[in-house]
Design a binder for these strands. Structure first.
Lengths: 141, 141
DNA sequence: TTAATTGCAAACATTTTGCAGGTTC
DNA sequence: GAACCTGCAAAATGTTTGCAATTAA
């Protein structure tokens, strides 16, 4: 839970590199997300930023996450029907999703070879490939 | 949109084969789902069954879909944060997801070779692999 | 007649929206 | 001061729940 916060300067540079105007609230959200590669819900980000002293509203958290996502700073992970997770791991990777615990774990994209990509539907181009390996705890049947 | 409905007998057999007690409402839901391999939301299933004359409530649709899912009759597809799709295609397949249109298309699992599966986290076993190839329309940048 | 199933309406949780007020260049 | 950003509260949406009524074994 405890995180070595990236410095404000580091975070600002990262936002600017992706064309995001670094406002106070965006910096607060970015500091939480980029403390380490992780998966957080909007609610968790709201609480974490406030715990660090940020004055930020729920609407702004959602606005900010949508912006970050559109700029490629975070990835939306849709595996849990009840909420979206925002993934701050910038490297190419896929996910294990533990259906018993709801836990989401990364594995490096190089660990899985995808061969013979199927033909895309006509008039479309690929935007990305998401692989989710659903796992469950061995003891439970 | 028009579908050649499977017969009641066919549907009942299919439910029973999966250990599902074929009640009137479950048969109605199954007839809609199994008219052809497709992806439907709970809302769409509610409307379609009623259009076919079924007397069924929203709660029963959700109950039924959760039951079908747990018995392996349908697969939950989580790609759109706004709602779950239920996939009645029983064969091994993955999905294209068109982020411009929200359209979901199947492609056969044999069209994509997955090599070198990564080691699972200790104490877990694989439950399945979902691959989603996100696509967008070529003209739109 | 007992257990399983269903329907209804209310509850819930997450996300979105409208708009007024603030902030920044 | 114009454009952008934020906060608040309310609304919207999809899903779940509690419980009484119905149905089926």
């Amino acid at each position: 839970m405890s995180q070595q916060q990236p410095t404000t300067e580091e975070v600002i540079r990262r936002l600017q590199k992706h064309g995001v105007n670094p406002t106070r609230q965006r910096i607060d959200v970015a500091r939480v997300l980029f403390a380490r590669p992780q998966h957080l819900s909007a609610e968790e980000i709201l609480h974490s930023t406030r715990k660090l002293g940020a004055r930020i509203s729920k609407a702004t958290v959602y606005n900010t996450l949508a912006l970050f996502s559109s700029k490629g700073l975070v990835r939306e992970i849709i595996v849990d029907p009840s909420r979206v997770f925002y993934d701050s791991n910038p490297t190419a990777h896929h996910h294990f999703y533990n259906i018993d615990t709801g836990e989401l774990l990364d594995f490096d994209a190089t660990q899985l070879q995808l061969r013979n990509m199927p033909h895309l539907p006509p008039g479309t181009v690929a935007d990305g490939v998401d692989v989710v390996i659903r796992i469950r705890n061995a003891s439970l049947q």
